[in-house]
């Protein structure tokens, strides 16, 4: 507080004139003014700057979380055909409605969507601001900077390979794997407590069928809804498994539900959906796809 000074107005207007005179000398004689001649020179923008979107097609799984979280409804999923990736769904963005809040990049479970530092987006036509997925495609953008969200090595289950041998549960030093029976199928699947998991990787090493693999997963800050199966309604059509972007839904046969056909043979048994929640990104597409109200997902709109 000592460096504060009492105001003095004895000089009437000489004090402010001293300051402006200094400024005049500084800008006119010594150097350039403070402003930047914008189109010629541009300022450096920080890495976190939220400009135009960039989408990594190879990382994107087409879950549509960005579409759901967008406060302005300015994103949508669009069907694209790619020679490499085949028929896929990728988000497009309407920059005319976007308010650049960055939630879409923040919620992306695979960190495929980024905000670049490109900010010169003005256009004379509104239609040109509706960017399709191909317009924002930039597969190498993610390599140009360090992602702030932390990656974790977690075991991810491939249920089609698992035979329920319980070896992984025995190996885990943190005791975070429990074998849970799957209703009506007579099988068990390991459920991994990701909060306790310390990424030792022992479970993946011991798994005889290579059903558990250690995969790098980005941490999410959003509490996403989880799907619940209502078994009585499930018809086993498998639509949800086909729609699931992260392949977290497996259709397992339920033994003992085979129907007897007309010719006396037994038909195929009924199937049910099984969720591997470690993989689930909470997008709610299974819920939206299910025609039999067999999946319940509170907080998601149909």
């Amino acid at each position: 507080m000592d460096d504060r000074r009492k105001p003095r107005t004895t000089g009437v207007v000489l004090n402010p004139m001293k300051r402006t005179g200094k400024q005049l000398v500084r800008t006119l004689i010594l150097g350039k003014p403070n402003t930047v001649l914008y189109p010629e020179e541009k300022l450096d923008l920080p890495q976190v700057y939220r400009g135009k979107h960039a989408l990594d097609f190879k990382k994107c799984i087409g879950c549509g979380n960005c579409v759901v979280v967008c406060p302005n409804d300015c994103m949508w999923l669009e069907k694209v055909e790619d020679p490499e990736l085949g028929k896929i769904e990728r988000p497009g963005v309407d920059l005319g409605r976007c308010m650049f809040c960055g939630f879409c990049a923040e919620v992306c479970p695979t960190v495929a969507l980024h905000m670049t530092t490109e900010f010169e987006l003005a256009d004379s036509d509104r239609e040109n601001l509706r960017l399709s997925p191909l317009d924002i495609r930039d597969d190498s953008f993610g390599e140009t900077f360090v992602e702030e969200r932390e990656k974790r090595l977690v075991p991810v289950l491939d249920l089609s390979k698992c035979d329920g041998c319980e070896k992984c549960a025995g190996e885990c030093p943190e005791m975070c794997i429990a074998m849970m029976p799957i209703e009506n199928t007579g099988r068990k699947k390991p459920e991994i407590n990701l909060v306790k998991c310390k990424s030792h990787g022992k479970c993946a090493e011991t798994c005889p069928e290579k059903a558990l693999t250690m995969t790098e997963v980005y941490e999410s800050y959003f509490d996403m809804p989880e799907p619940k199966l209502i078994l009585d309604n499930c018809s086993g059509c498998g639509l949800c498994a086909r729609k699931c972007p992260s392949e977290a839904i497996y259709m397992l046969e339920m033994p003992g539900t085979e129907k007897t056909l007309k010719n006396g043979k037994k038909g195929k048994p009924k199937k049910r959906a099984v969720f591997v929640l470690e993989k689930c990104v909470g997008c709610g597409r299974c819920y939206q796809a299910c025609k039999f109200d067999a999946i319940d997902m509170p907080g998601v709109r149909k």
Partner: peptide, 19 residues
């Protein structure tokens, strides 16, 4: 900023007309 605040005090408080 602290340097500038002193300057403002000249520019504003030190000016008779501002007062």
């Amino acid at each position: 900023m602290e340097m500038r605040l002193k300057e403002y005090e000249d520019l504003f408080d030190g000016s008779k007309i501002f007062m």
